[in-house]
Amino acid sequence: MDRFLYLTFDGLSRGAVYAAFALALVLIWRAARIVNFAQGAMAVATAYAGYSVADATGSYWLGFLVAVTGGLVLGAVVERVVMRFVDHSSPLNGVVVALGLVLIIQGVLGMIYGDGYRPAPAPFSRDAFEIGGIAILSRYDLFVFAAVGAVVVLLTLLFTRTATGLRMRAAAFAPDVSRLLGVPVGGMLTLGWALAAAVGSLAGMLVLPTELGLHPNAMDLLFVSAFTAAVVGGLDSPVGAVVGGLVVGLLLAYVGGYLGATVAPMAVLVLLVVVLLGRPDGLFARAKARTA
């Protein structure tokens, strides 16, 4: 029972990060109908920038800010400079270009920072509190929950309460009609990419301290888990992404805890295959219109 509780909390805190990262994928999917396979590499690039600033200034929070702002900028640049010119008549075109971006970003990071792992310290203690003798949550876990929760709340408010959110949704669903109504569709697309990349960078900053550290390929495995989370949630549904992220986090924790760490990545792939076979539109496909 102790072990189960421990694994559950561990799974939820990992799941929160997957949820944030899946949310980033969903944001771009909704805006542009592209699965941004470069999301992980982009997040690592901004994390390098963030930790460089943190090292130079001694302030983790300044670095954190640089990473997230860097995501915002990088997302906008990628949309404006690269994705805007991709022919979207076939969905594969965007995927291939995104994969190309991964190679370029990882290559450049390797040239600048080398192939070794660099430390990615956490801003809070990762030692878990003990309640009744069971190690449950650390300060850092609480920070992760708070950060992801804040992102979810802010995005929800943006999309449901603000004029810009309504413009973004309209531009994604019906670009031509939106244009006729005066919505700058191109600008909304850039904003969508910028927000998504910023959320991706945030997720990167949250997860790197819990893994081996900074490396050009550091987000590759996380990408698979987050992609699975997004697909489980239906790719189109922000609520689905959050639930999907938590499901994947729990699955990884339980399988890793009870069956061994080497089996865990397999479990994610099995979940992906099962969902694609059973409910290819995701568990939340039906609810998509209502949660939009």
């Binding site: 004029a163 309504l166 413009r167 949704r169 019906a174 031509d176 009609v177 109504l181 005066g182």
Partner: peptide, 19 residues
């Protein structure tokens, strides 16, 4: 017609105002 089918009636109408 070009009604945005994924948005509500009220949201569609508000779009008219968003320019």
């Amino acid at each position: 017609r070009g009604v945005v089918t994924e948005l509500t009636v009220d949201e569609n109408l508000r779009l008219g105002n968003l320019w």
